[in-house]
Design a protein around this nucleic acid. Structure first.
Lengths: 216, 216
DNA sequence: GGGTTTTTGGACTTGTGGGTCCATTTTCGG
DNA sequence: CCGAAAATGGACCCACAAGTCCAAAAACCC
């Protein structure tokens, strides 16, 4: 109802060749954005890089540029979680948590000042709603896994410190803490994007883990 | 050196009338953005709303749209800190911290899904560097005040709990904790912008304050 | 009050890059 | 191997808002 135009449907091409072309276009656009930024992104560039014609672009992305951008956003969103695996999927020990922390930090340090997902989303004109949905879904999944990891920590803490009461994170609401940690990460990345320094991201991660009772 | 074109200089009009016009334009553009978003922002709209002509726009903002956007960003950046006063300037007691927390939360809840500053910055084409500078300066000031507040808390803690060692925040690096807290806020706002829910912002704030030893 | 600078009006240019169309070729199912 | 559906090439369009210009009016300074 709130999506009057735009082509939000994932439309998978029926033929093998078509699917390949579509993939090529999306990946090419993604690389283009990573290298040159979204501002510079013209359909022509994508055409040149992926050796396709305009008719193909509009064939696979009837909604035009927004549609393509949305596909790129989906790709990049998937990559965000993938890049944190396998740790994010199995935050079952303090060691796993720290490995995860290091991976996140390294990933965003390497990515540097330009976040393809954030920037793709920000350029979405008409299909803003759909873009938000992609981002929201990513955040939800991310948070879910963090919360699972926190609960794991809490269970282990209970077993080990049964009888004692020194466990720092026993009384915490796992979802809420996951939300706070996720917010810290997002903010850290945002600040990294504007200042070029990952200090805030690192501080947020370390502060968050400390709060969960994980000492460096 | 890295600013080849663009008009980064603040150029204050020499005459009274000129200054007024310039202000009118910036404020009109800011309102326009708040109401309709940046995507919708056309110079014509600004002209209509502020009763100015194109020559005026380019007279006061030789760099064109980017230049204007930058001015809006500066305005909104100033507003961000102002809206947190007077608490942010005097985080000298737990009560002040909590009042500040409430104010931040209320401010961003009211602002809702669209952050004028963030969105103005994101639309800056050429003058991206200058935009980053504005954002970086805002973050730096913000963090400085948080850090000052944390140090205050630590000093008070020492006095009160002299001899004891139960003070939770005594050993913390104030700047680092301020950085983490700021990251949480930024991330919370970012998430608010994409999901419409302020839960993350609230979680980040509460988690951050708890870490500073401030119980609700 | 006169000369200079600033401010303002508004018509005109521009060019760019997104979007449309149709003809041709290729793929694919049976 | 044939006919339908899908994929592709590339010419064309064109809206549209950013940016330019010059001349008239107002403000300022002494």
């Amino acid at each position: 109802m709130t999506v009057p135009e735009g082509q939000t449907k994932e439309q998978l091409p029926p033929t093998r060749k078509g699917a390949a072309t579509r993939r090529r276009i999306v990946e090419g656009a993604a690389r283009e954005i990573r290298e040159a930024g979204v501002f510079a992104l013209r359909l022509e560039d994508v055409m040149a890089r992926t050796a396709t014609s305009k008719s193909q672009l509009f064939h696979y992305f009837p909604g035009g540029k927004d549609d393509l951008l949305l596909a790129v956003a989906r790709l990049e969103a998937a990559r965000v979680l993938d890049d944190q695996q396998p740790e994010l999927g199995a935050l079952t020990s303090p060691q796993a948590w720290w490995r995860w922390r290091d991976k996140v930090l390294a990933r965003y340090r390497a990515q540097g000042v330009s976040c393809p997902l954030h920037v793709a989303l920000s350029q979405l004109g008409t299909a803003t709603g759909a873009g938000r949905a992609v981002a929201a879904e990513l955040l939800a999944q991310w948070q879910r896994r963090l919360a699972a990891g926190i609960r794991h920590l809490q269970r282990d803490g209970e077993n080990i410190a049964a009888g004692l009461d020194a466990d720092p994170d026993a009384g915490l609401d796992a979802d809420r803490e996951a939300a706070a940690l996720l917010a810290g990460i997002q903010g850290g990345v945002l600040i990294l994007m504007t200042t070029g320094s990952a200090d805030h991201l690192e501080a947020a991660l370390d502060s968050g883990l400390a709060r969960l009772g994980l000492a460096p």
